[in-house]
Design a protein around this nucleic acid. Structure first.
Lengths: 111, 111
DNA sequence: TGCCTACATATAGGGAGTCTACATGTAGAC
DNA sequence: GTCTACATGTAGACTCCCTATATGTAGGCA
């Protein structure tokens, strides 16, 4: 997957993964991978800064926990994040529709 | 449309618009706008550098023409560009499939 | 004991491409 | 003389994704 392709869609992915339940960064990366059938391998250097950014802008909140001797920072959607997710979904539909309508191969009349 | 969303898809758009016939930059911008139903308003500061980049990498070739007293640089797909376009189309399908599978809202069993 | 893998978070710095803003010029309408 | 449409181009800012690196725990294995 071309790295640039993800650009601008990361927020939607993260918010969407957190919709059902709060998760910590590492689990988010795994979930992304599973839900995409292995297509999305997002590096930690992308996800952790993105999560902090989303928290800074109020779309996520986080709290620390220790599980099995390991520290986790668990993120959850805020109300604002939930609203944002709805916006991201409709933006995604518009985006794919716009690009798709340009990208579809020419259909030539037969004959 | 979030500017970043276009990132990494510009090449596909330009190649696709040039698939049927050679066009100059200004006409490419208009075609993009028409084919997307007005959703894609790509600024000249994006398109012109992108076209030059695609020419530099051998996916497009160009030649100057003067029409109605105005100078145009007309771009056309090279063989390499045509191959690239096929690749871009399949990459687009994989991309939307991957993101879409993550983004779709949870479907809860009823009851 | 030492080594490896999985789990878990984080930051610095690089890089690439899109955008804003500006510059330049012709043609034609009013 | 002014305005809009047509037409191309560059400089610099900005964003944010990636690579590389650092740190640390837990548990298996030899």
């Amino acid at each position: 997957m071309n790295p640039d392709a993800l650009r601008g869609h990361m927020d939607a992915l993260l918010l969407s993964v957190l919709e059902r339940e709060p998760l910590h960064g590492y689990a988010i990366i795994e979930t992304l991978q599973e839900r995409s059938g292995g297509a999305l391998s997002v590096p930690t250097g992308t996800v952790y800064p993105a999560l902090r950014r989303l928290e800074r802008t109020g779309l996520l909140s986080s709290e620390w926990a220790t599980v099995g001797g390991r520290r986790r920072r668990t993120y959850r959607l805020t109300d604002s994040g939930r609203r944002q997710l709805r916006g991201e979904r409709s933006a995604w539909r518009e985006f794919t529709s716009a690009i798709g309508s340009v990208l579809q191969p020419e259909v030539r009349p037969s004959g």
